[in-house]
């Protein structure tokens, strides 16, 4: 079972890697989102897959009965999902602001636009006098 998942993980990673190497920063962030999905699946797979019961101890027992899924990777992934969520949102908002202030999301234009910004029309000029 892990074999199939490994292929899926690899494909998601490839998609993430590809997008990370694009000129458009939005696509970079989408690449990151893909990568974090891929990493979560990777950790999940690396902890071995089980079609058994969820890692929950039934009423009346003091330990899981029968085959249960590996709980530790699940806890790790939960943590990673939440962290990834926070970072992703931050990155997206950073892009939004970058666009508002500089006027581009293209990696090869950032430097030039820093010297000659073309902010989005209609927004107030926020730059403090130097």
């Amino acid at each position: 079972m892990e074999a199939y998942l490994a292929v899926v993980v690899g494909a998601v990673f490839a998609g993430g890697f590809y997008l990370v190497m694009r000129r458009n920063l939005l696509r970079f962030v989408f690449g990151l989102i893909l990568l974090s999905s891929g990493v979560n699946l990777l950790v999940f797979t690396a902890g071995r897959i089980s079609r058994g019961a969820p890692p929950i101890i039934p009423e009346g027992a003091s330990a899981p009965v029968g085959e249960v899924a590996n709980a530790l990777p699940q806890a790790l992934i939960l943590t990673a999902i939440v962290i990834g969520f926070g970072l992703t949102v931050f990155a997206m908002v950073l892009l939004l602001r970058l666009y508002e202030r500089l006027g581009t999301l293209r990696t090869d234009q950032l430097k030039a636009y820093l010297e000659a910004p073309q902010p989005v029309p209609g927004l107030p000029d926020e730059e403090a006098p130097a």
Partner: peptide, 25 residues
């Protein structure tokens, strides 16, 4: 939110987020 900060910031964020992904991998 100075322009230089945002421009430098995106580079810093980008590289370090990729690093985080690789670390978690």
């Amino acid at each position: 939110n100075r322009r230089e900060q945002l421009e430098g910031g995106i580079k810093y964020v980008a590289a370090n987020l990729v690093a985080s992904m690789l670390l978690l991998t």
